[in-house]
Design a protein around this nucleic acid. Structure first.
Lengths: 142, 142
DNA sequence: GGTTGTTTTATAATCATTCTCATCCGATAA
DNA sequence: TTATCGGATGAGAATGATTATAAAACAACC
Protein backbone atom coordinates (compact mmCIF):
# COMPACT_ATOMS: atom_id res chain seq x y z
CA UNK A 1 0.00 0.00 0.00
CA UNK A 2 3.02 2.23 0.17
CA UNK A 3 2.52 3.16 -3.46
CA UNK A 4 -1.03 4.47 -3.04
CA UNK A 5 0.20 6.29 0.05
CA UNK A 6 2.71 8.28 -1.96
CA UNK A 7 0.32 8.69 -4.85
CA UNK A 8 -2.33 10.13 -2.56
CA UNK A 9 -0.01 12.73 -1.02
CA UNK A 10 1.11 13.76 -4.45
CA UNK A 11 -2.45 14.07 -5.77
CA UNK A 12 -3.70 15.90 -2.70
CA UNK A 13 -0.93 18.46 -2.85
CA UNK A 14 -1.50 18.90 -6.55
CA UNK A 15 -5.18 19.65 -5.98
CA UNK A 16 -4.68 21.80 -2.90
CA UNK A 17 -6.27 19.38 -0.46
CA UNK A 18 -4.96 19.04 3.07
CA UNK A 19 -3.48 15.60 3.68
CA UNK A 20 -5.43 14.06 6.55
CA UNK A 21 -5.34 10.53 7.77
CA UNK A 22 -9.04 10.04 6.99
CA UNK A 23 -8.63 11.20 3.42
CA UNK A 24 -5.70 8.97 2.87
CA UNK A 25 -7.54 5.92 4.11
CA UNK A 26 -10.71 6.73 2.14
CA UNK A 27 -8.74 7.14 -1.05
CA UNK A 28 -6.82 3.94 -0.50
CA UNK A 29 -10.02 2.06 0.21
CA UNK A 30 -11.50 3.12 -3.13
CA UNK A 31 -8.37 2.19 -5.05
CA UNK A 32 -8.04 -1.12 -3.26
CA UNK A 33 -11.69 -2.01 -3.83
CA UNK A 34 -11.26 -2.37 -7.60
CA UNK A 35 -14.87 -1.89 -8.54
CA UNK A 36 -17.84 0.39 -8.37
CA UNK A 37 -18.74 0.91 -4.78
CA UNK A 38 -21.18 2.96 -2.76
CA UNK A 39 -20.20 5.43 -0.04
CA UNK A 40 -21.71 2.98 2.44
CA UNK A 41 -19.38 0.23 1.20
CA UNK A 42 -16.35 2.46 1.36
CA UNK A 43 -17.33 3.55 4.84
CA UNK A 44 -17.44 -0.08 5.96
CA UNK A 45 -14.02 -0.74 4.47
CA UNK A 46 -12.52 2.38 6.00
CA UNK A 47 -13.90 1.52 9.41
CA UNK A 48 -11.62 -1.47 9.57
CA UNK A 49 -8.78 1.04 9.81
CA UNK A 50 -10.47 3.97 11.55
CA UNK A 51 -13.42 2.58 13.52
CA UNK A 52 -14.61 6.02 14.57
CA UNK A 53 -14.81 7.60 11.11
CA UNK A 54 -18.10 9.24 10.27
CA UNK A 55 -20.17 8.45 7.19
CA UNK A 56 -20.38 12.18 6.46
CA UNK A 57 -16.61 12.36 6.20
CA UNK A 58 -16.63 9.59 3.64
CA UNK A 59 -19.32 11.41 1.63
CA UNK A 60 -17.50 14.73 1.87
CA UNK A 61 -14.21 13.33 0.74
CA UNK A 62 -15.60 11.20 -2.04
CA UNK A 63 -17.30 14.29 -3.40
CA UNK A 64 -14.07 16.28 -3.18
CA UNK A 65 -12.12 13.53 -4.92
CA UNK A 66 -14.71 13.37 -7.68
CA UNK A 67 -14.73 17.13 -8.13
CA UNK A 68 -11.00 17.36 -8.57
CA UNK A 69 -10.87 14.34 -10.84
CA UNK A 70 -9.10 11.93 -8.51
CA UNK A 71 -12.06 9.54 -8.82
CA UNK A 72 -14.80 9.07 -11.32
CA UNK A 73 -18.48 8.98 -10.48
CA UNK A 74 -20.18 5.95 -12.01
CA UNK A 75 -23.67 7.36 -11.60
CA UNK A 76 -23.38 10.86 -12.98
CA UNK A 77 -27.12 11.25 -13.49
CA UNK A 78 -29.68 13.49 -11.91
CA UNK A 79 -30.56 12.28 -8.45
CA UNK A 80 -34.21 11.83 -9.33
CA UNK A 81 -35.78 9.47 -11.82
CA UNK A 82 -36.38 10.84 -15.30
CA UNK A 83 -38.84 9.37 -17.69
CA UNK A 84 -38.84 9.35 -21.47
CA UNK A 85 -41.86 8.70 -23.66
CA UNK A 86 -39.85 8.50 -26.86
CA UNK A 87 -39.57 4.82 -27.69
CA UNK A 88 -37.86 5.28 -31.03
CA UNK A 89 -34.27 4.06 -30.83
CA UNK A 90 -32.13 7.00 -29.81
CA UNK A 91 -29.27 7.76 -27.49
CA UNK A 92 -28.55 10.33 -24.82
CA UNK A 93 -26.00 13.04 -24.32
CA UNK A 94 -25.72 13.78 -20.61
CA UNK A 95 -23.95 16.71 -19.00
CA UNK A 96 -21.81 15.45 -16.14
CA UNK A 97 -22.13 18.73 -14.32
CA UNK A 98 -25.75 19.88 -14.59
CA UNK A 99 -27.19 16.45 -15.46
CA UNK A 100 -29.19 17.77 -18.40
CA UNK A 101 -30.07 15.17 -21.00
CA UNK A 102 -30.38 15.69 -24.74
CA UNK A 103 -31.35 13.17 -27.37
CA UNK A 104 -28.82 12.28 -30.00
CA UNK A 105 -29.37 10.33 -33.18
CA UNK A 106 -26.98 8.87 -35.67
CA UNK A 107 -24.85 5.80 -36.17
CA UNK A 108 -21.72 6.28 -34.16
CA UNK A 109 -21.49 2.90 -32.43
CA UNK A 110 -20.07 -0.21 -33.99
CA UNK A 111 -22.40 -2.77 -32.47
CA UNK A 112 -20.56 -5.76 -33.91
CA UNK A 113 -17.39 -4.65 -32.25
CA UNK A 114 -19.21 -3.73 -29.08
CA UNK A 115 -20.74 -7.17 -28.64
CA UNK A 116 -17.39 -8.76 -29.36
CA UNK A 117 -15.98 -6.88 -26.36
CA UNK A 118 -18.96 -7.45 -24.10
CA UNK A 119 -18.83 -10.36 -21.67
CA UNK A 120 -20.56 -13.53 -22.70
CA UNK A 121 -24.30 -13.54 -22.19
CA UNK A 122 -24.78 -9.80 -21.94
CA UNK A 123 -27.94 -8.94 -23.82
CA UNK A 124 -27.43 -6.03 -26.22
CA UNK A 125 -30.53 -6.49 -28.34
CA UNK A 126 -31.90 -3.04 -27.55
CA UNK A 127 -28.92 -1.15 -26.24
CA UNK A 128 -29.20 2.36 -24.92
CA UNK A 129 -26.04 4.40 -25.13
CA UNK A 130 -25.36 7.37 -22.91
CA UNK A 131 -22.47 9.65 -23.67
CA UNK A 132 -21.29 11.88 -20.86
CA UNK A 133 -19.60 15.20 -21.42
CA UNK A 134 -20.06 18.88 -20.65
CA UNK A 135 -22.90 20.86 -22.14
CA UNK A 136 -22.19 24.21 -23.71
CA UNK A 137 -23.38 26.22 -20.73
CA UNK A 138 -21.36 24.29 -18.14
CA UNK A 139 -18.32 24.34 -20.38
CA UNK A 140 -18.50 28.11 -20.55
CA UNK A 141 -18.72 28.44 -16.77
CA UNK A 142 -15.60 26.45 -16.01
CA UNK B 1 -54.78 14.41 -27.80
CA UNK B 2 -57.22 11.90 -29.23
CA UNK B 3 -54.34 9.97 -30.72
CA UNK B 4 -52.50 9.40 -27.44
CA UNK B 5 -55.84 8.52 -25.92
CA UNK B 6 -56.29 5.67 -28.34
CA UNK B 7 -52.67 4.68 -28.15
CA UNK B 8 -52.83 4.44 -24.38
CA UNK B 9 -55.91 2.20 -24.35
CA UNK B 10 -54.25 -0.04 -26.87
CA UNK B 11 -50.99 -0.26 -24.93
CA UNK B 12 -52.72 -0.78 -21.61
CA UNK B 13 -54.84 -3.64 -22.94
CA UNK B 14 -51.79 -5.18 -24.56
CA UNK B 15 -49.91 -5.18 -21.25
CA UNK B 16 -52.83 -6.23 -19.09
CA UNK B 17 -53.17 -2.94 -17.25
CA UNK B 18 -56.58 -1.64 -16.24
CA UNK B 19 -57.48 1.54 -18.08
CA UNK B 20 -58.08 4.17 -15.44
CA UNK B 21 -58.50 7.88 -15.84
CA UNK B 22 -55.41 8.59 -13.73
CA UNK B 23 -53.25 6.27 -15.80
CA UNK B 24 -54.44 7.78 -18.99
CA UNK B 25 -53.65 11.30 -17.87
CA UNK B 26 -50.24 10.34 -16.47
CA UNK B 27 -49.29 8.65 -19.70
CA UNK B 28 -50.47 11.54 -21.80
CA UNK B 29 -48.56 13.99 -19.63
CA UNK B 30 -45.32 12.12 -20.23
CA UNK B 31 -45.88 11.93 -23.97
CA UNK B 32 -46.90 15.56 -24.19
CA UNK B 33 -43.92 16.74 -22.17
CA UNK B 34 -41.44 15.77 -24.90
CA UNK B 35 -38.40 15.50 -22.74
CA UNK B 36 -36.90 13.85 -19.70
CA UNK B 37 -38.97 14.69 -16.68
CA UNK B 38 -39.10 13.77 -13.03
CA UNK B 39 -42.11 12.21 -11.30
CA UNK B 40 -42.53 15.51 -9.49
CA UNK B 41 -42.78 17.36 -12.81
CA UNK B 42 -45.25 14.88 -14.20
CA UNK B 43 -47.29 15.15 -11.03
CA UNK B 44 -47.48 18.91 -11.42
CA UNK B 45 -48.60 18.57 -15.04
CA UNK B 46 -51.19 15.93 -14.22
CA UNK B 47 -52.61 18.02 -11.40
CA UNK B 48 -53.79 20.55 -13.92
CA UNK B 49 -56.25 17.88 -15.06
CA UNK B 50 -56.81 15.94 -11.84
CA UNK B 51 -56.07 18.28 -8.94
CA UNK B 52 -56.57 15.56 -6.34
CA UNK B 53 -54.15 13.01 -7.78
CA UNK B 54 -51.58 11.70 -5.37
CA UNK B 55 -47.85 11.74 -5.97
CA UNK B 56 -47.77 8.06 -5.03
CA UNK B 57 -50.15 7.26 -7.85
CA UNK B 58 -47.85 9.00 -10.30
CA UNK B 59 -44.87 7.05 -8.98
CA UNK B 60 -46.79 3.76 -9.08
CA UNK B 61 -47.94 4.22 -12.61
CA UNK B 62 -44.65 5.50 -13.97
CA UNK B 63 -43.00 2.42 -12.53
CA UNK B 64 -45.62 0.19 -14.12
CA UNK B 65 -45.20 1.89 -17.47
CA UNK B 66 -41.45 1.52 -17.31
CA UNK B 67 -41.68 -2.14 -16.32
CA UNK B 68 -43.87 -3.04 -19.24
CA UNK B 69 -41.85 -0.98 -21.69
CA UNK B 70 -44.36 1.79 -22.37
CA UNK B 71 -41.80 4.34 -21.16
CA UNK B 72 -38.06 4.36 -20.83
CA UNK B 73 -36.21 5.24 -17.67
CA UNK B 74 -33.50 7.80 -18.35
CA UNK B 75 -31.69 7.12 -15.09
CA UNK B 76 -31.41 3.37 -15.00
CA UNK B 77 -28.59 3.37 -12.49
CA UNK B 78 -28.34 2.19 -8.97
CA UNK B 79 -30.07 4.59 -6.63
CA UNK B 80 -26.90 5.27 -4.67
CA UNK B 81 -23.69 6.89 -5.82
CA UNK B 82 -20.96 4.58 -7.06
CA UNK B 83 -17.34 5.52 -7.23
CA UNK B 84 -14.58 4.30 -9.51
CA UNK B 85 -10.88 4.63 -8.84
CA UNK B 86 -9.87 3.49 -12.30
CA UNK B 87 -8.89 6.60 -14.21
CA UNK B 88 -7.69 4.84 -17.31
CA UNK B 89 -10.08 5.54 -20.19
CA UNK B 90 -12.70 2.83 -20.20
CA UNK B 91 -16.43 2.50 -20.61
CA UNK B 92 -19.23 0.83 -18.68
CA UNK B 93 -21.72 -1.87 -19.39
CA UNK B 94 -24.71 -1.43 -17.09
CA UNK B 95 -27.51 -3.90 -16.48
CA UNK B 96 -30.84 -2.11 -16.72
CA UNK B 97 -32.43 -4.54 -14.32
CA UNK B 98 -29.98 -5.20 -11.49
CA UNK B 99 -27.86 -2.07 -12.06
CA UNK B 100 -24.60 -3.95 -11.96
CA UNK B 101 -21.72 -2.25 -13.73
CA UNK B 102 -18.87 -3.88 -15.60
CA UNK B 103 -15.95 -2.25 -17.31
CA UNK B 104 -15.60 -2.62 -21.04
CA UNK B 105 -12.63 -1.75 -23.19
CA UNK B 106 -12.21 -1.47 -26.89
CA UNK B 107 -12.85 0.93 -29.72
CA UNK B 108 -16.48 0.66 -30.63
CA UNK B 109 -17.39 4.35 -30.83
CA UNK B 110 -16.74 6.56 -33.82
CA UNK B 111 -15.92 9.79 -32.04
CA UNK B 112 -15.67 11.82 -35.20
CA UNK B 113 -19.15 10.87 -36.18
CA UNK B 114 -20.37 11.30 -32.62
CA UNK B 115 -19.16 14.86 -32.36
CA UNK B 116 -20.67 15.63 -35.74
CA UNK B 117 -24.08 14.64 -34.34
CA UNK B 118 -23.62 16.34 -30.98
CA UNK B 119 -25.05 19.83 -30.54
CA UNK B 120 -22.68 22.71 -30.92
CA UNK B 121 -20.55 23.44 -27.91
CA UNK B 122 -20.95 20.08 -26.21
CA UNK B 123 -17.59 19.14 -24.75
CA UNK B 124 -16.60 15.57 -25.62
CA UNK B 125 -12.92 15.77 -24.79
CA UNK B 126 -13.08 13.02 -22.17
CA UNK B 127 -16.27 11.22 -22.98
CA UNK B 128 -17.56 8.40 -20.83
CA UNK B 129 -19.82 5.96 -22.59
CA UNK B 130 -22.34 3.79 -20.80
CA UNK B 131 -24.06 1.00 -22.64
CA UNK B 132 -27.23 -0.36 -21.08
CA UNK B 133 -28.44 -3.89 -21.60
CA UNK B 134 -29.24 -7.02 -19.61
CA UNK B 135 -26.53 -8.95 -17.80
CA UNK B 136 -26.39 -12.69 -18.21
CA UNK B 137 -28.05 -13.44 -14.90
CA UNK B 138 -31.00 -11.09 -15.42
CA UNK B 139 -31.41 -12.29 -18.98
CA UNK B 140 -31.72 -15.86 -17.74
CA UNK B 141 -34.37 -14.91 -15.20
CA UNK B 142 -36.68 -13.32 -17.70
C1' DG C 1 4.94 26.00 19.90
C1' DG C 2 1.02 29.23 18.57
C1' DT C 3 -2.38 30.82 15.38
C1' DT C 4 -5.54 30.38 11.78
C1' DG C 5 -8.43 28.24 8.77
C1' DT C 6 -9.83 23.70 7.43
C1' DT C 7 -11.55 19.05 8.58
C1' DT C 8 -13.99 15.94 11.30
C1' DT C 9 -17.72 14.38 14.09
C1' DA C 10 -22.38 13.73 15.75
C1' DT C 11 -26.65 14.83 14.90
C1' DA C 12 -30.45 16.96 12.76
C1' DA C 13 -32.57 18.06 8.49
C1' DT C 14 -33.91 17.23 3.78
C1' DC C 15 -35.32 15.00 -0.26
C1' DA C 16 -36.90 11.29 -3.23
C1' DT C 17 -39.18 7.25 -3.07
C1' DT C 18 -41.85 3.42 -1.16
C1' DC C 19 -45.10 1.49 2.07
C1' DT C 20 -49.45 1.03 4.59
C1' DC C 21 -53.94 0.82 4.80
C1' DA C 22 -58.43 2.66 4.49
C1' DT C 23 -61.36 3.95 0.86
C1' DC C 24 -62.99 4.00 -3.74
C1' DC C 25 -64.34 2.33 -8.28
C1' DG C 26 -65.59 -0.74 -11.99
C1' DA C 27 -66.62 -5.20 -13.54
C1' DT C 28 -69.16 -9.06 -12.97
C1' DA C 29 -72.64 -12.21 -10.73
C1' DA C 30 -77.08 -12.57 -8.67
C1' DT D 1 -80.56 -2.87 -9.87
C1' DT D 2 -77.88 -4.45 -6.08
C1' DA D 3 -74.12 -7.13 -3.83
C1' DT D 4 -69.53 -8.62 -4.12
C1' DC D 5 -64.71 -8.67 -5.21
C1' DG D 6 -60.17 -7.25 -6.61
C1' DG D 7 -57.37 -3.97 -8.03
C1' DA D 8 -56.44 1.29 -7.96
C1' DT D 9 -56.09 5.42 -5.46
C1' DG D 10 -55.07 8.85 -1.77
C1' DA D 11 -53.14 10.58 2.55
C1' DG D 12 -49.74 10.31 5.30
C1' DA D 13 -46.12 7.71 7.61
C1' DA D 14 -41.77 5.31 6.96
C1' DT D 15 -37.40 4.55 4.85
C1' DG D 16 -32.92 5.39 2.97
C1' DA D 17 -29.50 8.25 0.87
C1' DT D 18 -27.46 12.43 1.17
C1' DT D 19 -26.50 17.15 2.93
C1' DA D 20 -26.38 20.85 6.42
C1' DT D 21 -25.02 22.55 11.01
C1' DA D 22 -22.25 23.65 14.66
C1' DA D 23 -18.85 22.44 18.03
C1' DA D 24 -14.42 20.11 18.75
C1' DA D 25 -10.00 18.45 16.68
C1' DC D 26 -6.45 18.96 13.50
C1' DA D 27 -3.01 20.39 9.68
C1' DA D 28 -0.33 23.95 7.72
C1' DC D 29 2.16 27.87 8.01
C1' DC D 30 4.66 31.07 10.67
Amino acid sequence: MRLTHEKFRELAVKHGLAVTHQRQVVYEAVIASHGHHSPENIHAAVRRHIPSISLATVYNNLRLFIECGMLREVTPHATTVRVDGNLKPHHHLVCSRCKSVQDIEGEFVDFKRLSRHAPDGFDLTQPLIEVFGLCRRCRAKK
